[in-house]
């Protein structure tokens, strides 16, 4: 075993490593290292210094935190909790903004939808309407109503259909039976 490998194995074994070197059944690396140290003056000196290092490391004992540590920490924790609450509220507020905007748009009557290819035509129509003198507007409105005349002519049917929905099923069956 080389000196460097022996020293590495000794260091590793200090913290509970039991790796076995080489083939199954071979001596653990640490046993090989100890055998090497017995016959190597330099590695023996290394082992002594390593033991002295452990003693020196033991001088640095854990120290509790200074006074007021807990008070400061729990104040920061409370601040964190409040901050999380505020962030939560803001998240809800921002989540509600689109709904609020949509509601406002619906109330004011602005187009609450993405532009479509027909929007250009609608804008053109609005431009034409804007050029019509106010005194002629009543006539234009009448003409526009005329476009809906077919619907108006069948208004009675629509009303009849709505009336059908209010009739109970049994009554409807009776009416249909009479019709047959």
């Amino acid at each position: 075993m080389r000196c460097e490998d022996a020293r590495a194995a000794l260091d590793t074994s200090r913290y509970g490593d039991t790796d076995r070197a080489g083939e199954p059944g071979a001596k653990p690396a640490v046993e090989q290292a100890r055998a090497h140290v017995e016959g190597c003056t330099e590695c023996e000196a290394f082992a002594e210094r390593a033991a002295a290092l452990d003693r020196m490391l033991a001088l640095d004992e854990p120290q509790p935190p200074g006074p007021g540590f807990d008070t400061r920490f729990f104040a920061r924790l409370e601040e964190e909790r409040q901050s999380r609450k505020r962030r939560g509220l803001w998240r809800w507020t921002w989540a509600l903004v689109p709904a609020g905007v949509a509601a406002a748009v619906a109330l004011v009557g602005l187009p609450a939808r993405a532009p479509t290819p027909t929007d250009g035509a609608a804008q053109g129509e609005h431009a034409v309407l804007a050029e019509i003198p106010p005194e002629d507007m009543a006539l234009v409105m009448e003409l526009e109503l005329l476009e809906d005349l077919p619907v108006l002519e069948r208004l009675e049917e629509v009303e009849a259909f709505e009336l059908l929905e209010t009739i109970e099923a049994e009554e409807l069956e009776a009416i249909l039976g009479e019709a047959e």
Partner: peptide, 10 residues
């Protein structure tokens, strides 16, 4: 890392 750390400390 530990072996290198201990060697450097020594």
């Amino acid at each position: 890392l530990i072996h290198r750390a201990r060697s450097a400390m020594m």
